[in-house]
Amino acid sequence: MTEPTLFSRIAGTGSALPARRVTNDELAAELAARGIETSDEWIRTRTGIAERRIVSEGETTHTLALEASRNALQAASCSPSDIDLVIVATTTPDELFPSEACRLQASLGIPPCGCFDLQAVCSGFVYALITADSLIRSGAARRALVAGADTFSRLLDWNDRSSCVLFGDGAGAVVLEAGAEPGLAAGVLVADGSRGDILRVPGRIEGGRLRGSGFLYMEGRAVFREAVESLESTAREALARAGLSAADIDCYIPHQANIRIMTHVAGRLGIPLERMETAVTHHGNTCAASVPLALDEAVRSGRLRRGQTALLQGVGAGMTCAAALLRY
Rank of each mutant, 00 (worst) to 15 (best):
P4T: 14
L6Y: 07
I10G: 00
S15V: 11
P18C: 12
A19C: 07
R21A: 02
R21S: 06
T23D: 07
N24L: 11
L27K: 04
A28W: 01
E30W: 05
E30T: 00
L31H: 01
A32T: 14
I36C: 02
E41Y: 03
G48I: 00
E51I: 03
R53P: 12
V55G: 08
E57L: 10
E57K: 04
E59F: 09
T61Q: 03
H62C: 00
T63E: 00
L64I: 03
A65T: 01
E67D: 12
A68H: 05
S69R: 01
R70A: 02
A75Q: 10
A76V: 00
S79Y: 03
V86F: 01
V86M: 13
V88K: 07
T90C: 11
P93N: 11
E95N: 15
L96V: 13
L96K: 08
S99I: 10
Q105G: 06
G109Q: 10
I110A: 09
I110N: 10
P112C: 04
C113K: 06
C115D: 13
D117E: 10
L118T: 02
C122S: 13
S123H: 12
Y127D: 06
A132E: 10
A132Q: 08
S134V: 00
L135D: 03
I136S: 06
S138H: 03
G139I: 09
G139Q: 12
A141R: 11
F152I: 06
L156K: 07
D157H: 01
D157L: 13
D157N: 14
W158Y: 15
D160N: 15
D160R: 11
R161C: 08
V165C: 06
V165L: 08
G170E: 04
A178N: 05
G179H: 09
A180K: 01
A185L: 14
V188P: 01
L189I: 06
L189N: 04
V190Q: 10
V190N: 08
D192C: 10
G193A: 13
S194V: 05
L199N: 05
G207F: 03
M218S: 06
M218N: 10
E219A: 12
E219Y: 12
R221V: 05
A222K: 15
F224M: 08
A227K: 09
A227S: 15
E232P: 04
A235H: 05
A235F: 06
R236K: 15
R236M: 12
L239S: 14
L239Q: 14
A240Y: 02
A246S: 15
A247W: 01
A247K: 12
D248L: 14
I249Q: 14
D250P: 09
N258E: 00
N258G: 02
I259D: 07
M262S: 04
T263Q: 15
T263S: 14
R268Y: 01
G270E: 12
I271A: 05
I271K: 03
E274Y: 05
R275P: 00
A279L: 05
V280W: 13
T281K: 14
H282Q: 05
G284Y: 01
N285F: 00
A288R: 06
S290I: 10
V291I: 15
L293G: 03
A294H: 07
G302K: 07
R305M: 14
R306P: 04
T309H: 08
G314H: 06
V315M: 15
V315C: 11
G318W: 05
T320V: 11
T320Q: 10
A324Y: 01
A324D: 08
A324K: 05
Y328F: 08
